[in-house]
Write a protein that binds this DNA or RNA. Sequence first.
DNA 1: CCACCTCCATTACGACTGTAATGTAACAGA
DNA 2: TCTGTTACATTACAGTCGTAATGGAGGTGG
Lengths: 194, 194
Amino acid sequence: MRERWVPDARRSAVADAVGRLLTRGHGTFPGMREIAAEAGVTTGTLQHHFATKDDLLLFALDHHCRRCADRLKARSAQDLPSPRRALAAIVTELLPLDDDRAAETSVAKAFVSRAATDPGFAAHYRAQREILLGLLGEQFGRAGTPDPAAAATILAQAVEGMRTDCLLLGPDAVDVDAVLDRLLPPSSSPEETA
Amino acid sequence: MRERWVPDARRSAVADAVGRLLTRGHGTFPGMREIAAEAGVTTGTLQHHFATKDDLLLFALDHHCRRCADRLKARSAQDLPSPRRALAAIVTELLPLDDDRAAETSVAKAFVSRAATDPGFAAHYRAQREILLGLLGEQFGRAGTPDPAAAATILAQAVEGMRTDCLLLGPDAVDVDAVLDRLLPPSSSPEETA
DNA sequence: CCACCTCCATTACGACTGTAATGTAACAGA
DNA sequence: TCTGTTACATTACAGTCGTAATGGAGGTGG
C-alpha cells in the first residue's frame, strides 16, 4: 500500500535531501532531478508539493533555519549554570561538527549569495540573525558584560567566520574557548573548568 | 585598427566582469554568454583566453584575491602611526563599501560554497586567510596584545561576519570600532581620536 | 457505481548550458 | 608575397535545466 505521509513530513524530507546535496555537492544548487533522486521520489512528486524550484529552495532554507533555531533555543534554555557555558553551547551548536549541522551550515552559506539580491532569502538571514543576537545578548547580559547587544553582535559575526573556517579548514581551525576568552571579562567566570 | 591588449589585461577585464555580475547578479555563477556580454566580447574570446569555465572562474577568484591582498599590504605598510589605526584600515578595506570591494566580497562569498568540495578553490581561501592573519597578527603584536596570533584569528573570523552583514544588511550594520574596542586592550592606545 | 480528489509517475518541450568546430581578419617574419 | 600565428566572431551540438501536460492509481463521499 501507499505509504502514509503527513504532508509536511514529505516536504521536510525533501528539504533534508537538499541539505545533504548541498553539503557534499559541488557548491551550486542541485537540480530538480538530483533533488528528487536524493529524496527517493520523482520530479512529479516535487512539482506536486512545491509550486516552483525557488519555492522548494525557500522551504529548505526555512526548514534548516527553524531546526537550527529550535536547537539553539533548547540549548540556551537548558544550559543555565553559567553564561559562559551557555555561550559556548550556543556557538558550538552552530558549528558544522556533525552531518545535520554541516547541512545547516552549507545551506546557510549557499543561500548568502542568493540573499544579496533576493529579498525573500535575505529575510531569513535577518530573522536567523535576530534570534541569535537575542540569545547571545541575553547571556552576555547575565555575565555582566557592558553593552551586551554589541558584544552579541561581535560574537555573531565571529561565529560566521568560525563556521566557514570549520567548513573549509576542519574543526581544528576553530577554538570556541579562545574567542570567549577575549569577549568575556575573565573575572566574571573564573575557573570554569572544574 | 584592432585594439592593443596586453593579454593579461584582457583576462583581468573578464575577471572584473565576473565580479560585477556576481555583485548585482542572482547569486549563482553567471553563464559564459552573460560574462561575455558584460565584458563586451563574445564567447569565442573567452574560449580563446580560458581553457574552460572553471579556469575562467578560478582566474577571476585569483584576480580579486590578489587585488584585495595588494591593497591590504599597501594599507598596512602605510598606516604605521598606531596599530589600532592600522587594524581599522585593514578591516575597513575588506568591507564591501564601494563597487570594487563589493565585487571582491561577492566573489569571495560565491566561491566559499565551491571551496567546500573543490580543493582548487579552497586553496585560495586558505592563502587569503594566511595573508590576512599575518597582517592582523603583526599589528596585534605591535599593540602588545597577548597571543597576537589568536587575536588575529578571532578578528579575521569577525571580519567574515562583518562582510556578510555589510553585504546583506548594509554598511550601518557593522561597527569596526566596536569590534576593535573589544579585541584591543583600551589601555594600549588611549585617546586615539585626536 | 460513479464522480472527485489527492498523490504521484512519465513524458515532452523550449530555453539554456558549456564547449567543439569552423571561419576570418590582422599582423609578423621570411 | 607567402606563411604562420594570434585573436577573435559565428555557428553548431549534445546535454541539462525547470516546468507544463498528461495519465493513472488509490482513497472517499454520495
